[in-house]
Nucleic acid binder design. Structure first.
Lengths: 182, 182
DNA sequence: TGCTACATGTAACACGTTACATGATTGT
DNA sequence: ACAATCATGTAACGTGTTACATGTAGCA
């Protein structure tokens, strides 16, 4: 019975369908695979949101490629709505970084465990970095000329810078802890 | 009636009290002022969590400096519990970056609005960066010799690297959008 | 035949913030 | 006197995930 089902989910849903019409199931896969590094939606959000959007006439449902599957697409009103939502101020959720929380209480956790956490974080960042490079190369090839490409590259650049920063930070932090008694 | 009130909140509460006994109110201020860049707790979390911890004998309540105020401190059992919780695997919450979500759908939002978002983000990052430098200088002075200092410096270093990366990314992204038709 | 992937939807639960109710202390 | 700050707690609300229930289609 929600009226204002979280606007941010509506952005992801309308935005995804604005690139290509698809089923709710495919939409979730697309969000996971394409926005996965900075956004996520679960079925429990997507289905109710699609129902709300349909009730408001912002998306339409047609028979999908397979029986039992619906193909959703954005209506002109839906595109207007998406433009409005995108222009709205960003609502930041309060920060919750479990890694930094643990490191801050490193005196209690112990320096050795801190080092392990840092090494693991460094490894993850390096894996992400490699993945970003691979994705960037792939979409430059496959989506060459697409009007969405520059924007995808902007978000990938964010991931790259963030991963590089994480690696440099981990090295700094390991050096800092070197001096702090093992 | 919750049994497992979010462990991460317990870490913040026990960890804060492990540095110095204080009232629930002071604890919230300490968390906001000291962990604010990577963690947050609200009263609605802190009070019930303290009640749970007290019922389990992990924190104790003494009369505070002012009538009506309780001074909470960690018991030996509480310190053990904190050590356990800190060693537990980090539960990451799904990413939700509203800025990147908007930029990804930049074709719909428009290049001009994207640029504004990037300039604003760059400004915020620069403000954070200045703040991190100021805090680092202050605690190096005030908390010199404290066993907690190196760990505080590690978390500050994370903030510094992250802010610097955000600035560099914003510049990159603005350049990328320069080519992408205004 | 049976497994996997595709597909839709709901319900229960956990989480977390905001607003509210209430009151004491301190400084002006 | 009055305002601001310190202080404790609860309730309502929104949000978001997970697990469940259900069924179809393609393939080995």
């Amino acid at each position: 019975v929600t009226v204002v089902r979280r606007q941010q989910t509506q952005i992801a849903v309308l935005g995804g369908l604005s690139i290509a019409p698809m089923s709710a199931y495919a939409l979730r896969e697309a969000i996971r695979d394409t926005l996965g590094h900075f956004w996520s939606e679960s079925f429990g959000q997507i289905y109710p949101t699609l129902a709300d959007l349909e009730a408001e006439g912002l998306v339409e449902r047609a028979d999908g490629s397979r029986p039992g599957a619906s193909l959703f697409s954005v209506t002109p009103a839906g595109l207007l709505r998406l433009r409005e939502l995108l222009a709205e101020p960003i609502t930041m959720l309060p920060p919750r970084n479990g890694l930094l929380l643990r490191l801050f209480f490193g005196r209690v956790l112990g320096v050795a465990a801190c080092r392990e956490l840092l090494v693991a974080a460094r490894g993850q960042a390096q894996a992400s970095l490699a993945e970003y490079h691979a994705i960037a190369a792939r979409i430059r090839r496959e989506d060459a000329g697409s009007p969405d490409l520059p924007f995808a590259l902007v978000t990938l650049s964010a991931g790259r810078h963030s991963a590089e920063a994480a690696i440099a930070w981990a090295d700094d932090a390991l050096a800092l802890l070197e001096g702090a008694g093992s």
